[in-house]
Amino acid sequence: METKIKYYLQIADNALILSHRLSEYCSRAPFLEEDLANTNVALDLIGLAEAVYEEVARMEGKGRIGDNIAYLRKENEYVNSILVEQPNEDFAHIMARQFYTDAFHFYFFTELCNSKDEFLQAIAHKSLKEVTYHLRRSSEWIIRLGKGTEEAKQRTQTAIDKLWKYTPAFFIESKADVQMLKNEVGVDLHTVYNQWKQKVSEVLYLAHLKIPTSDFLIKGGKEGVHSEYLGYILAEMQFLPNKYPDAVW
């Protein structure tokens, strides 16, 4: 049960933390339509996270609710990949982070549709619809930026290169990944990685951008080891439930 909960949390924490980063950007996009589009993605992700946290609360049977699990854990109990907590440096970084994550989500949820776990199978089908759109949007932005002005191209290449080193965090198998794959609940991350790599290469090619070749790779996240940024995110997210433990929506 504990392993299964860990597996659920890997899915939910990625969605929650990326959603938080996108929410920080609300009202700061270059123009109104883009602002709406970004917050739409944030809302899709928070919906995904919420459904999974509620299910975790139900599974553990300790009388907690989804919010308790989303907001009241310690930093090393969060198991999101280290990529999604990276800050909103500029629009190119936001889109590169989104693109890498959307491509991962797309192939991950495609595989998860075959899970023997009924809840995960249902959530995979539902999320796949949303994620298909997210991936289309972020792929097109990467292509548009890559083929845009000299500055756009250069900033996007910088973001693609800089965030590349965090991408293995999605694919390195945690103990929960190994166990859940054995139980036919989880997905084979090697398969997901190969498809992800293919898609990323395709889009970068179309965008006239270079595929990063750096082999300096950082693998944190799933085992609770994070970059310096997650602590600040949690401080902000946890301020309210800490100060007003009984607050309701």
């Binding site: 123009f31 109104l32 339509e33 883009e34 709406l36 589009a37 739409n40 759109y133 289309r136 949007r137 097109e140 548009r144």
Partner: peptide
């Protein structure tokens, strides 16, 4: 507002 066709249909969808 949009810069190209793809962006126009996506912004329309999101708005």
């Amino acid at each position: 507002h949009a810069y190209d066709r793809e962006m126009a249909i996506e912004n329309a969808r999101d708005t």
